[in-house]
């Protein structure tokens, strides 16, 4: 999959949050390894490690044996908790070994987009559980009866607040006909970020249905705006669309009113044929929704040179409004 240049483009735009999640897993792994080593290792091994940690300069001036002894005092873990820790380490290593594939999903023909995302996120949830188990064991708080189930995959519905906040982005390759935006709405929480790489025939503005006041939504055909997905402090949906689709950015940070937040840069001609289960009427409805949200409710007074930048959206909204007038004959005829 990653050989697809558009998938690569999406991954590159999401490099930082992906790297952050990797660092999260790797950090837990390193902490777990260090803990296991301390539990298992005999004194010579501990001293060797302390000497390595002190570096070449330190090891030649500092007695590593006594330095290692300064930091013993770590609690001894029980055998079941150590077994859980080893399992957690295995899980994290497997996840880390998947590389970019951990952050990629593909909606094959016949599959439902919601289910594909659900199962991809369940893998991430598995990693979360493993990370928490490493913390619990190291902190001596692991209780087999309460916590063993954390080492199973965890569906998104079961993620808690902090897990939703730590969620990595997911790139989803999907055919236009399989894009069902409403199936994705339930994932809008925390820092969940879904980027669809859409190919083939597609409705022009499927993500319009996902616009809510706190969700960042972007449709792009050339990848512009994807970098802002990574920066947004909240849930985000993005679609890298085939040429000809509507392009817009909805950035919740830009204002309280939808017209302040929404910048529409391109509206295509009226849809002429059904795509998958989407009738032309349904497709048009999404375009109208976009136009509605972007429409300036009043004339913006001249606010000097320092008007809120979102006000620039009014131009596009006016264009959409006039376009809608010209298209009005189509309403309800699909």
């Amino acid at each position: 999959m990653p050989s697809d240049p558009r998938v690569q483009q999406a991954l590159t735009a999401l490099d930082r949050p992906i790297a952050e999640f990797r660092a999260l897993m790797e950090g837990a792994l390193r902490q777990a390894d260090a803990f296991l080593e301390q539990q298992m290792a005999d004194e010579p091994a501990r001293v060797k490690r302390a000497a390595a940690a002190l570096g070449v300069f330190g090891a030649s001036h500092i007695d590593a044996t006594r330095f290692a002894a300064l930091h013993v005092g770590t609690r001894t873990a029980t055998e079941p908790s150590l077994a859980a820790l080893r399992r957690a380490v295995d899980i994290l290593r497997q996840m880390a070994d998947r590389g970019d594939n951990l952050f990629l999903a593909e909606v094959t023909s016949g599959a439902k987009i919601g289910a594909v995302v659900e199962s991809a996120l369940a893998m991430i949830g598995w990693a979360f559980g493993a990370i928490i188990v490493t913390d619990l064991v190291r902190g001596g708080r692991y209780v087999e009866a309460d916590h063993a189930s954390m080492l199973d995959p965890l569906q998104f519905g079961g993620w808690n607040r902090s897990e939703r906040r730590a969620a990595p982005p997911l790139v989803v390759r999907v055919a236009g006909a399989s894009v069902r935006a409403t199936d994705l709405a339930s994932f809008a929480d925390g820092h969940v970020k879904l980027v669809l790489v859409v190919s083939g025939d597609c409705a022009p503005a499927p993500l319009a249905r996902l616009i809510t006041p706190g969700t960042f939504v972007v449709q792009t055909t050339d990848g512009s705006g994807l970098d802002r997905v990574a920066l947004f402090d909240g849930p985000a949906f993005a679609a890298l669309m085939p040429a000809g689709a509507a392009t817009f950015v909805h950035d919740p940070a830009l204002g309280r009113e939808s017209w302040q937040r929404l910048t529409v840069s391109f509206i295509p001609d009226a849809p002429k044929k059904a795509v998958g289960a989407m009738s032309t009427w349904q497709q048009l409805e999404e375009l109208k929704q976009l136009a509605d949200l972007a429409r300036t409710p009043f004339a913006v007074p001249n606010a000097g040179g320092n008007a809120a930048p979102a006000m620039g959206a009014s131009d596009a909204a006016d264009r959409i409004a006039s376009w809608l007038l010209t298209q009005s004959g189509l309403g309800g005829t699909a």
Partner: peptide, 13 residues
Amino acid sequence: FHVMITARRLAEA
């Protein structure tokens, strides 16, 4: 070069 590794470790320890 090598002193920086030791310095970081001692600062933390």
